[in-house]
Nucleic acid binder design. Structure first.
Lengths: 156, 156
DNA sequence: GGAGTCAGTTCAATACTTGAACTTATGGTG
DNA sequence: CACCATAAGTTCAAGTATTGAACTGACTCC
């Protein structure tokens, strides 16, 4: 059976690519954990949607739902390491929005206080990889296919 | 008039946060430019949706629609620099999907051939900023508000 | 002159989202 | 004790968006 190539961008968007999910993840990253905290901090989310999204995120291993009190039952939602790894996705959205959309907030390094960017990095060469050099290629297991440039030149 | 604080993540998702838009951007980044190319490469997108998304992206200055032939009229869609800057957002989604979701593709530096990661970088200090140190803070114009951690510890 | 390509549009059926109200269990106040 | 508030959701009707299938023009190629 010839499976079609699965793109990691498409796979990720299947899990978190709707209007609300990444806002929920943003606020979980910021330490919110209870249903009511999320409902109040995710701008205008209807509780039915929040409930649905939390269920899906739990099913996909992005967060864990923990009862922190039995009577009455109360729950805390916390990101797993898989969910926590979405931080840089949220960071990339924040960084773009800071520059190109309406924004009153900035992304900074808490230690030095300077604004930060989101960039590509080659851990093997221990250096930055400019976007112009980054491509999506077939994984080692299926090595026959040609390179597909992720970044081609922009127009201005 | 007291405007509520605009979060750059929310602003960005207002523009590109639906199921299809970032897949369209992905393929524009990979050099696809014509309607039919996009319809064929964005997995299963209905043409009505593609048409709508392209209109919205053009309205928001993320791409430009250029007629490259008059008779019959044919058009090319190309990212502006604003749109091109979404590359790292798509890259972050790809990087996460590569590690945590179904994926047959990997993100590599075309020059060295090694896999790349998406990380925070402080251009002032010229060093990486670990996610644990990155926060969203009020922009200079409204300096009174407290820090809000973007990344708090994950559970495992 | 018939088939094919390109760039979409149209439309009815389906799915998803929304807002408002409601539930259940408990704690605190007077 | 009665009353209000809080937390964590659920329910439901109404509205909005998405989907798939089919269709339209204006060509070009054979």
């Amino acid at each position: 059976m010839v499976r079609s190539i699965r793109c990691p961008v498409a796979s990720t968007l299947d899990l978190v690519g709707d209007r609300w999910t990444l806002l929920v993840v943003r606020d979980l990253l910021r330490g919110r954990s209870r249903f009511s905290e999320l409902r109040d901090s995710v701008e205008g989310i209807p509780p039915a949607i929040l409930s649905l999204r939390l269920k899906l995120l739990e099913e996909n291993g992005i967060l864990r739902r923990r009862q922190y009190q039995t009577n009455p039952p109360r729950f805390a939602y916390q990101l797993t390491s898989k969910g926590h790894a979405l931080g840089v996705v949220v960071g990339a959205l924040a960084s773009w929005g800071e520059k190109f959309a309406e924004s009153d907030l900035a992304l900074v390094d808490d230690e030095c206080g300077h604004g930060v960017r989101v960039v590509y990095h080659c851990p093997t060469c221990a250096r930055r990889s400019p976007g112009s050099r980054v491509r999506m290629v077939d994984s080692p297991s299926s090595p026959a296919a040609p390179f597909a440039a992720l970044h081609s030149p922009a127009i201005h």
